[in-house]
Each structure stands twice: as structure tokens, then as C-alpha cells.
């Protein structure tokens, strides 16, 4: 049976009917058309589906949709403001942190959750924040650089 939930998505209030068995990722991608959040594994093992819920990075592929009720949720689509990309997005682009790009949105969301909580993270903090985001292309080095550059720039 469908249930109605209301939550804040990228700073806008959303009310939508959902099926209890859906995951948050399913709602975002298949119902709301927000395909920036990716599914890489479906089991919380790769981080491609990372979104920010109440300030924390979460795997949306194993997040029960009904738990979204009343929450403040940000996806990759919520980062740019008036067509201007977020500093983290710009840093990823400029530092070469993007290759095939499939892990990129999740990676950026993990990095954002970190910087929101800790504006001046250490390299270890950065690694801890993205340890659940697998990337097969870049070897991570330039991703770490990108996040560092934003931290330093604040």
C-alpha cells in the first residue's frame, strides 16, 4: 500500500506517494527523475548512491524510503546554485578527479558531508570520508587533491 511522505529535497519541500519497499535511491532515480545519484552495487558497498541526510553521508540504495519522512536530504543536483557549480564540483573538475565519472556524484556528496562538518579536515579525515566510495579509474589521488584544495581555500 502506498503512503505519502513529505521531506525536504535540495531545499524544497516534496510530498510524494511511495511504496514501503522502495529505497530512497529508487524514489530519487525512478520516480523523481534525479538520476545524478547512481547505483553501483545496490548493497551499500560502493558509495555511488551517496546522498546527504541530516548532514550525514548515507548510502541511499539501502535506505528505506519511509525513513525519508521529515528529513532534510541533499543530492548532487542540490549542490549547484543558479547554474553555478559548487566549489567541490569545480575542484573535482579542475584537479582531474573525474574520469568515467560514475563514482563522482557520490564521491562529491561524501566530501561535502565531511567539509560541512569539518571545514579543515586532515588527509586522514578525507580518506575516512570517502573510504566507502569506490573508484576504479583515478586511483583516488586527484580526488584527495580536489577535496584538499577546497578545504584549504576556505
Amino acid at each position: 500500500m502506498r503512503k505519502e511522505i513529505t521531506f525536504t529535497l535540495n531545499n524544497e519541500e516534496v510530498t510524494v506517494e511511495v511504496e514501503p519497499k522502495w529505497t530512497l535511491l529508487y524514489l530519487l532515480r525512478e520516480v523523481l527523475g534525479l538520476t545524478g545519484t547512481k547505483e553501483g552495487c545496490g548493497y551499500g558497498e560502493c558509495g555511488a548512491c551517496t546522498v546527504i541526510i541530516e548532514g550525514k553521508a548515507v548510502n541511499s540504495c539501502i535506505y528505506p524510503v519511509l525513513e525519508a519522512e521529515g528529513k532534510n536530504i541533499t543530492t548532487i543536483e542540490g549542490l549547484s546554485k543558479n547554474g553555478e557549480l559548487h566549489v567541490l564540483q569545480k575542484a573535482f573538475i579542475e584537479k582531474g578527479a573525474v574520469q568515467c565519472g560514475f563514482c563522482t556524484p557520490g564521491m562529491i556528496m561524501s566530501a561535502k558531508a565531511l567539509l560541512d562538518e569539518k571545514p579543515n579536515p586532515t588527509e586522514d579525515d578525507i580518506k575516512e570520508a570517502i573510504e566507502g566510495n569506490l573508484c576504479r579509474c583515478t586511483g583516488y589521488v586527484m580526488i584527495i587533491d580536489a577535496i584538499k584544495s577546497v578545504a584549504a581555500g576556505r
Binding site: T37, I76, K90, I93
Partner: peptide
Amino acid sequence: KKIPKLDAPLKAAGVAQYIQD
């Protein structure tokens, strides 16, 4: 020159269309 990848903005913004999308 170290020129950023041209399609990186689309990918970083989450608007690049993969087959999944």
C-alpha cells in the same frame, strides 16, 4: 597543458547520461 576533462562538468553536476539514466 593541464586542461580539465571537457565532460567533467556534466559528470560532476550529475547530469551526464549513463546507460542507466
